[in-house]
Amino acid sequence: MNIQAAITIYKFEMARFRRTIFQSLVAPIITTSLYFVVFGAAIGSKIESINGVSYGSFIVPGLIMLYLMTESINNAAFGIYFPKFVGSIFEVLSAPVSSLEATVGYVGAAASKSTIIGLMIFLTSNLFVTHDIKYPLVMAVFIILTAITFSLFGFIIGIWAQNWEKLSIIPTLLVTPLVFLGGSFYSIDMLPEFWQKVSLLNPVFYLISGFRWSFFGTSEIPIALSIVAILSFMAICLLVIAIIFKTGYRLRT
C-alpha cells in the first residue's frame, strides 16, 4: 500500500487549511459567538430549560454538529473539486495511488479540519455557558464519525460537481436545512405531533440527538439508533466512492 501517497495528499490539504487559517477558524468562532449571544442570552433567557438543561447549553451540541457537518462537506468537496477545476488532478490519477489511498488523504484532511473547527466551537461555547460532558468518549467518537462520514459525502459532491454552483447546491439546499430542522436549536418534543413524526425521517436528527446524549445523558431516541444511523450513512458513502473509483465517474474519461 502506498501510505506515503495518502500522507502526501493529507499534508498538502492541511497546508491549504493553514494558509487560510483566519478564514477557516475565526469565521466559525465569530458566528458561533453570535449564535450564543442571540439564541443563548437574548432569546434563550425567555425559554424554559429543556429536560433540565438550560437552553444555552442545549444548543451547544447542535451548533457543533451544524459546523461539523457543513465544514466536513465543504472542505472535502473543495479539496477534490479544486484540483479537478484547475486540472492538477491529473497528477493523482496518473500516480500509483489507489482509490483507498486517495480517499484516506482527501477525506482524512477534510475530517481533521472540521474536527479542529468543531473543537474550537466547543471551546468557544465554554465562554458563554458552563456544562459538564457526561460521556466524553462517546462525544469524541461521535465527532470523529460525523466528521469522517460527512467528509466522505462532501468528497462525493466534489467529484460529482462540474461547476461552482453544483458544488454549493447540496450543502446549501439540502444539508443546512436538514441540520436546522434536525433539532439543532430545539427538542422535537416542542413540535406538534405531526412534525415530530416528520423529523424522524430526517437522518441528521439521529446524529444530533445521539451527540446531545453524550453531553447530557438524555436524548429523544436511543443512542444505539444514532450510532446505527451514522454507520449506515458512512457505509453508503463508502460504497458510492468505491463505485466512483471503479467506474472512473467524472475523474477518468
Partner: peptide
C-alpha cells in the same frame, strides 16, 4: 494544470510523495 497557491518546492515534493 497547477495549484497556484502552492510553492514551487512543495509542489515538486507533492509529486514525489504521490509515488
Amino acid at each position: 494544470p497547477l495549484d497556484g497557491f502552492e510553492s514551487v518546492y512543495n509542489s515538486c515534493q507533492f509529486s514525489r510523495g504521490l509515488f
